[in-house]
Computed example of a mutant assay.
Amino acid sequence: MKKLVAAIFFVAIVIIVWLLNTSLLVTPPSGTAKILAHRGIHQVYGLDGVENDTCTAERIERPRHAYIENTIASMRAAIDSGAEVIELDVHLTPDRQFAVFHDWTLDCRTNGTGVTEQTPMSKLKTLDIGYGYTADGGKTFPFRGRGQGQMPTLTEVFTALPHGRFLINFKSERREEGATLAVLLRAHPEWRKLVFGVYGGAAPTQETLRLVPGLKGYDKHSTLACLGRYAAYGWTGIVPDACHDTLIVVPGNYARFLWGWPARFAARMAAAGSEIILLGPYGGGDFTSGIDNADDLALVPPNFSGYVWTNRAETIGPLLGRRLAASSDQTNRN
């Protein structure tokens, strides 16, 4: 009898957990998937073996286009491909400007040397940011000369693309970067709507969030706090405080393990005031793996209305558009 009671109790718990977390009994948030273009449209490279000090410009794939990451031209091309948000990287220079450039040092991609944040913007403007790119081990450098003077400031990006939206990645742990961005947005309130969010270094990210009301953002600690606590007790329907009013990055290969994925999870996060960013498969290292090809699109649920992180906006934008159109046609026929 005790075994029977225990079995019935176990089955009842399973049924309750299923009812609380199945997506079959919830309407997903309205809207369609949106493209978030990592670094704009850029030259891609394999992630295998990449470490913090790897010069990725020396291992790019054979170029399919002429765009260089983090340039205004690459961001404009990403928007033209359907991207709603552009991710970009910033460094606060000694002359108090935000240089839009990925690397901590200049040696890999440019014809300059030194630490990016320690170099005045006036000097950075003289560099060729396409100098170091090669797809054949240094036999040829197809972008040399094409990036001369093309490193923009954040102010130039906002001015050139007034209808864009940007996810700003702080590359340092300098709290003053967050304070400086807040001052910039106060001085130009029309630019506040251009900032989708901030992330990266914990100190500048949290400082920006403290000083700019309503802005969303995340760092490694806040992401782990949200997803870790949700994994522990999210099955109850309770959304941890760490998951409220924020940006939640979800690796595509782990998404199915989240309580209520996809529709129930999305509805809970929407009710908590948060946005979901769906990444590609996570295999260690940083969160830069994207939804980058047709096979990866299988990780994007049919009714997903969050943001799809991609390194190939020029490919995924049209593919996602055709998938949505096909789904709409099927719905109409039914």
Rank of each mutant, 00 (worst) to 15 (best):
residue 259 W to E: 04
residue 85 V to K: 08
residue 320 L to I: 02
residue 291 I to E: 09
residue 262 P to I: 01
residue 303 N to R: 14
residue 9 F to A: 15
residue 186 R to M: 04
residue 235 W to H: 06
residue 232 A to I: 13
residue 306 G to Y: 00
residue 245 D to F: 09
residue 210 R to M: 11
residue 57 A to Q: 01
residue 7 A to C: 09
residue 295 D to E: 13
residue 53 D to C: 07
residue 20 L to E: 07
residue 268 R to Y: 05
residue 189 P to N: 08
residue 177 E to Y: 11
residue 184 L to Q: 12
residue 179 A to C: 03
residue 192 R to W: 05
residue 31 G to D: 12
residue 128 D to H: 10
residue 305 S to H: 10
residue 236 T to K: 10
residue 160 A to E: 15
residue 119 T to C: 04
residue 64 R to Y: 08
residue 29 P to N: 08
residue 141 F to M: 02
residue 81 S to K: 02
residue 244 H to K: 12
residue 146 R to L: 15
residue 61 E to N: 12
residue 300 V to L: 13
residue 27 T to Y: 11
residue 146 R to Y: 15
residue 214 G to C: 11
residue 116 T to Y: 11
residue 275 E to F: 14
residue 93 T to V: 04
residue 307 Y to P: 01
residue 49 G to R: 10
residue 252 G to W: 04
residue 104 W to C: 07
residue 232 A to C: 06
residue 131 Y to H: 14
residue 55 C to K: 11
residue 141 F to S: 02
residue 233 Y to R: 02
residue 158 F to M: 09
residue 295 D to W: 02
residue 23 S to Q: 06
residue 222 S to Q: 08
residue 305 S to I: 03
residue 200 G to P: 02
residue 217 G to S: 07
residue 273 G to M: 03
residue 17 V to Y: 02
residue 173 E to Q: 11
residue 51 E to N: 14
residue 242 A to E: 01
residue 57 A to E: 06
residue 2 K to G: 13
residue 142 P to Q: 11
residue 69 E to Q: 15
residue 234 G to W: 01
residue 256 R to N: 11
residue 250 V to K: 10
residue 294 A to C: 00
residue 280 G to E: 02
residue 186 R to W: 05
residue 12 A to M: 11
residue 131 Y to N: 05
residue 183 V to I: 04
residue 108 C to Q: 04
residue 286 D to P: 01
residue 214 G to Y: 06
residue 121 M to W: 13
residue 135 A to D: 13
residue 329 D to L: 14
residue 107 D to E: 15
residue 225 A to L: 15
residue 261 W to P: 01
residue 104 W to Q: 10
residue 225 A to K: 12
residue 220 K to E: 13
residue 83 A to W: 08
residue 254 Y to W: 15
residue 132 G to F: 07
residue 266 A to K: 05
residue 319 L to A: 15
residue 110 T to V: 09
residue 165 R to C: 09
residue 110 T to G: 12
residue 253 N to G: 09
residue 143 F to E: 09
residue 11 V to L: 15
residue 287 F to Y: 12
